[in-house]
Nucleic acid binder design. Structure first.
Lengths: 216, 216, 216, 216
DNA sequence: CATGAATGAGATTTCATTCAT
DNA sequence: AATGAATGAAATCTCATTCAT
């Protein structure tokens, strides 16, 4: 942060790698594969290549470490999802195709490694850190719903969707996408072939458009 | 069996009969409020009113205890859900009303104490016990989807729904119900007023019927 | 003990197998393969085919069980050894051959399954049950030494060995036999080929006779 | 390292240096008086003046602790025995006296506190750690036998013993020494008076020399 | 700032032993 | 006499966290 401007200095001759970032990355990785309780600080420190007290110096305690690691991952996942939703800003002539494309991209994000780990950790710790979970939920699902609602509102105003409550429409579109995927991937334990993912996206959009498409 | 008829005679000089059930109940309660790792067998034993080794005598180890407690809870939740789905066997004249009624009942089950705890534990341990989770998932969500698909197939044949893939329709109806509820209850951390629950059910059914209702 | 006179009724149509004997046998077997502390009463009961409390009914506690099991095994081993020593009662013309034969037989006993297990258990528990160990030691090694000393005294009187302290001679003969065997069998962990065992016996007797043989 | 020079400064604010050695010493002491299974790490930690996890930090687990403690004790005992055997390098004119002196010294070592404890532990755990026991056996008995054989070979070459297999001679001399001592000390449970120890040594050497002394 | 070493607390599990039938 | 069920006690080991350098 001091010298280099690239926060994760790709291949740049990074002078001092940010230990803090290394710790957070390692923490998310370890939390993801072990869960919160089973993850031990020693393993995180090893994965980050630092000594245990260094972790405590930077992030005070295990809980804080978890909160920061989760927060960072949530931001990343959300950015990816919003990027996918942006696609709807320029729907082109074929709305159905644009929706399907957007939907498929979002599903890809949701099925990705990071999003799956984040979802598991989120659910797993909803009892232990309800406030954190709520924050994450709002910064991810909530934020995505809003972005989607914005797009749908524009489309409705433009007459390309029938008049509707855009928040509700967005909520239902998301549900039609993620619900079946969770079921088919068995909560993320089995990989879903790309073709099936695409089929889920298309079925969701078809149903959505029958319900929300412009009236004949 | 001879003298005492109290099935759970607290401190009665005979404690042979339903110790196992008491342990399983206590286990689910403790797992539900502490999570798998934080739950300790001592607490479960205390809650069940038995000594710690008794727990081990009956259920071998913590993992086995967890599996049985989860399995039992899953069966209970499923039975409740199937009972709600049965409502669709006699839809009466007003299909929309019947669907909304069924939907609302299922949401009530899903938002109940036990179902919420089961959902949390399921997600939380999907990394640790993938096989168990898969089983639970199939015995609950999967089974419910099938039951629902059966009903929808009948309705479709009867011309009260347009021709469709009943499995897909059931999957999407379930998604339209549970997805929004998860979002609004913040993964189950906040109570959703009955009115809002009903609204979710109605919106889901309305959307569903626009997509799957009989063609004009 | 009541009806049948065969204490371990070989193939006889044993009316009531002696549970007590079955327990003692099982106990020795389990103690032998697990050691005293690692042997658990449950396993002994299983091996004996009875329930755990039955073991306690018959033998009061684990310590008592151990004492009786060890005692019985010691008696058996001792009987075998004494039988071998008896051979010296009729030495025949060739004393050297008679001694070698006796020595070899005793080594066979000492290397047998039971004697080895007994030796291990004895040493292992010498700290925990010093009195028992002392008893066993006297009933086995001590008793054998005396028997041997008797034979050697006769031989000495008969002029077939030079005048000597027969107790000391017996002690040293035993030492020349068992010491090298313990070393070569690595305390009983590796099998010693019969040829090597015989060589040990012969070397012991040769040395013994050079020291105690009749003066030229 | 800067302020305190006391190598084991009891409660000094620095305890970094010889904790490991203190733990190993304490471990051998506790194992010696309790046996492997009955020794508990808590007691070892207390005896060493450290906290329980410190024991685990330094030696990983109870088994490893045992192996190291035994190994160290074996080395010490062996060094003492080899020092005694060295005596034979300068036998002087009176071979018999030199042998008796050496023999007595070795018996003193063998009857010492540490050697007795080592022997008990060795036998007791021969079932549980056969590889360790074998190692110990070779590093002690085996090594001593070789050293002794070397001395005897020299003496034989010098004509002070008759031509013989020195390994066998050493083996038998050791047996003549330790065998009777084990019997008389009842496996180490009772103290043998110095006079009796000396008598055993002399008897062993006398017998040995009659068998292996120079031919008249 | 980074670290090696140390520790207090607590979890799972096993075992010998005893009731009550 | 024999047993299924229950229990008090204890042991191994792990972890989050803190000194002192």
């Amino acid at each position: 942060m001091t010298a280099a401007t690239t926060p994760s200095g790709r291949t740049a001759p990074r002078g001092r790698i940010d230990k803090r970032q290394a710790i957070l990355d390692a923490a998310f990785a370890v939390f993801a594969r072990r869960g919160y309780e089973n993850a031990c600080v020693r393993e995180i420190a090893e994965e980050a290549g630092v000594a245990k007290p260094t972790v405590y110096n930077h992030l005070r305690d295990k809980e804080n470490l978890f909160r920061h690691a989760i927060g960072a991952a949530a931001d990343t996942v959300m950015a990816e999802n919003l990027a996918a939703a942006e696609r709807l800003r320029t729907p082109g002539d074929d709305l159905r195709a644009a929706l399907k494309d957007t939907a498929y991209r979002m599903l890809q994000v949701c099925c990705g490694e990071r999003a799956r780990a984040l979802r598991w950790l989120t659910y797993a710790q909803v009892g232990g850190f309800p406030d954190l979970i709520e924050t994450v939920q709002e910064r991810t699902h909530g934020r995505l719903g809003e972005a989607l609602a914005d797009r749908l509102a524009r489309l409705s105003l433009a007459g390309r969707l029938r008049p509707c409550d855009p928040a509700l429409a967005a909520e239902q579109l998301l549900a039609l996408l993620t619900g079946p995927m969770e079921a088919r991937s068995r909560l993320g334990t089995r990989a879903v072939p790309a073709a099936e993912t695409r089929a889920v996206a298309e079925a969701a959009v078809d149903t959505f458009l029958r319900a929300y498409g412009p009236t004949a």
